[in-house]
């Protein structure tokens, strides 16, 4: 089984729409850093983060964000799909709170998408775990929260529910105006016109999909 890359990398560059000198970057194996002066100085933003692969679960550095993004209409609301779960901040990444639910399969994955204006809404595409990088139980679903991660709803309509070995890379889920699109490494692309509740297949024979973006 392939376990992906073994080197750290910056995968998320998140610019505050109110102030382009204020941005966050997220680095695999390190965590989230913030600058307020256009990149001259940086500070860590990993308070509240936890991991499950180091002796100290709450280290300042050593976390593994998979993707970080913010809500464009409520930029103090940041969402993070991490190796060790889903984390949410409603205070500009001053603190994070783990909001994933391993018991219902909403925990591990790579991408996370936010709403245009509601900071408490987000979508993820859960996978089995770090040693099972595929749909859980062979059935793909998208999970959505509208209450800052307190509760999650799973949506399966239109997505394959048998023999699905799909996994969605960190940049291969996007949302704009209630329309979502996701692409998988097995070349399947799906679109939802109703905020993720049901999905239509766009095609099954693409090459591995690395990125999906609405322009």
């Amino acid at each position: 089984m392939a376990y992906g890359e073994f080197v750290a990398g910056i995968h998320s560059v998140v610019i505050d729409p109110r102030d382009s000198n204020h941005m966050y970057v997220a680095v695999s194996c390190a965590g989230v850093a913030e600058t307020r002066d256009g990149g001259r100085t940086w500070a860590s933003c990993n308070k509240g983060m936890t991991n499950d692969y180091l002796p100290n679960a709450e280290v300042e550095w050593g976390h593994d964000p998979h993707f970080v993004t913010l809500c464009p209409g409520a930029p103090d609301h940041l969402w993070q799909q991490n190796h060790s779960g889903i984390f949410y901040s409603d205070n500009g990444a001053k603190t994070w709170r783990k909001v994933s639910r391993d018991d219902v399969g909403v925990h591990f994955g790579f991408p996370i998408a936010t709403d245009d204006s509601d900071g408490r809404t987000a979508w993820v595409v859960p996978a089995g775990g770090d040693s099972a990088r595929m749909s859980i139980g062979g059935g793909m679903f998208v999970a959505r929260t509208r209450d800052g991660g307190e509760t999650w709803q799973a949506f399966r309509k239109g997505l394959p529910q048998e023999h699905s070995y799909d996994i969605v890379y960190r940049h291969a889920l996007d949302q704009r105006g209630g329309r979502l699109c996701l692409g998988t490494t097995t070349g399947n692309v799906y679109v939802s016109e109703d905020a993720g509740e049901s999905w239509q297949c766009v095609g099954n024979n693409f090459p591995p999909v690395h990125s999906v973006r609405f322009s």
Partner: peptide
């Protein structure tokens, strides 16, 4: 001593 699953790929 901690025996842990390594962070792998991602």
């Amino acid at each position: 001593v901690f025996i842990l699953q390594a962070l792998s790929g991602g």
